[in-house]
Lab assay of single mutants.
Amino acid sequence: KKRQCKVLFEYIPQNEDELELKVGDIIDINEEVEEGWWSGTLNNKLGLFPSNFVKELEVTD
């Protein structure tokens, strides 16, 4: 099962390897990279994003 999260706050990337987040976006979570940062895929782009800007969705079948 893939983990997903929903964006709660807009985020403007500070580095090229970060994702731009818009409220309501759904991100496929890949892994936790470091404290406070997750790796995920949004709009076919893989990048990092701050985990405190999102809420993980309940996994359903």
Rank of each mutant, 00 (worst) to 15 (best):
S51C: 08
D61V: 08
I29L: 09
K6W: 11
P50K: 09
Q14S: 07
S39G: 05
D28Y: 08
E56L: 12
V23D: 02
N43F: 11
T41K: 09
D25K: 11
R3E: 06
P50H: 14
K45D: 04
C5P: 00
K6E: 12
D17W: 08
V7A: 12
L21R: 01
D17V: 14
S39M: 11
S51E: 02
L48A: 04
T41W: 13
W37S: 02
R3S: 07
L19P: 01
L48E: 04
L19I: 12
G47I: 04
Q4L: 15
N30I: 06
E18D: 02
I29V: 14
V59S: 15
E10I: 01
S51V: 12
E32W: 06
E10T: 09
I26N: 01
V59W: 11
E32N: 02
K22R: 09
N44S: 09
N44Q: 10
F53Q: 10
K1E: 04
T41H: 10
V33R: 14
W37V: 09
R3I: 06
V59M: 09
D25G: 01
E58R: 09
S51F: 06
E56M: 10
V7Q: 14
L46A: 13
I26V: 09
Y11G: 01
N15Q: 09
D61F: 03
E34N: 07
P13S: 05
D25V: 02
E18W: 01
V33G: 05
K2V: 04
W37E: 13
L21T: 01
E32M: 15
L57K: 09
L42C: 10
L8Q: 06
L21S: 02
L21G: 07
V33M: 14
V23F: 02
F53M: 14
L42A: 06
Q14M: 07
F49L: 02
K6C: 14
L57R: 03
E18P: 00
E56Q: 08
F49Q: 00
L21K: 00
G47H: 02
E20C: 14
R3N: 06
I26E: 05
E16K: 06
N52T: 13
G47P: 01
D17F: 09
Q14V: 07
V54G: 03
N15H: 11
S39Q: 09
E31W: 02
D61W: 02
L19R: 03
W38G: 04
I12S: 11
E56H: 03
C5T: 06
E16S: 14
Q4T: 15
S39A: 07
F9H: 15
V59P: 11
P50F: 04
F49T: 00
L48K: 15
I27W: 00
G36F: 09
Q14R: 10
E34R: 12
I12Y: 14
Q4K: 15
E58S: 12
N43L: 05
F49E: 01
L46K: 14
G24L: 01
N52K: 14
F49D: 01
V54D: 02
F9P: 05
I27P: 03
S39V: 14
D28P: 02
P13G: 04
N52Q: 09
K6F: 12
G40A: 02
L46E: 15
N52C: 14
F9S: 13
T41F: 08
E56F: 06
K2N: 09
I27F: 04
D17L: 11
E10L: 01
I12M: 13
V59E: 15
E10R: 11
G47T: 03
V59D: 15
E34H: 15
G24F: 04
W38I: 12
L42K: 08
V7M: 01
F49G: 00
E31P: 01
N15P: 03
E18H: 07
G36R: 07
D28M: 06
E18V: 00
G40C: 03
D28A: 04
L48S: 05
S39I: 13
E20T: 06
E10K: 09
K2P: 08
D61Y: 06
E10C: 09
I27R: 00
V59Q: 10
D17G: 12
P13K: 09
L8N: 06
K55F: 10
Q14W: 01
K1Q: 08
C5F: 07
N44Y: 05
T60N: 10
E18A: 01
D28S: 07
T41Y: 12
I29W: 02
E58Q: 15
S39H: 12
E16N: 02
K22S: 08
V23M: 07
E10Q: 11
K45M: 04
E34S: 13
W37R: 06
T60W: 10
K2A: 10
K6G: 04
D61K: 04
K45I: 06
G24I: 09
I12F: 13
C5K: 03
L57V: 09
E31I: 11
L8M: 15
K22T: 15
N44P: 07
T60S: 12
N15W: 05
W38S: 05
Q14A: 10
S39Y: 09
T41R: 10
L48P: 06
V33N: 15
L46D: 13
V33L: 10
F9D: 11
D61E: 15
N43P: 01
N30W: 03
F9A: 13
I26S: 03
D25P: 06
G40N: 02
G36A: 07
N30F: 11
N43K: 04
L8W: 05
L8P: 04
L21E: 05
W37H: 03
D17E: 15
E56K: 15
K6Y: 15
E20M: 09
N52P: 09
E16W: 08
V59C: 11
E56C: 13
E10V: 06
K22P: 03
V54R: 00
E10P: 11
G24T: 04
V54H: 01
E20S: 08
V23C: 05
L42F: 03
V33I: 15
W38Q: 04
D17Q: 08
L8A: 07
I26D: 04
F9M: 15
I12E: 11
W38N: 03
N43D: 07
N30R: 10
F53G: 05
P13R: 13
N44W: 00
L46G: 08
I29T: 04
E31S: 07
V23R: 12
S51Y: 04
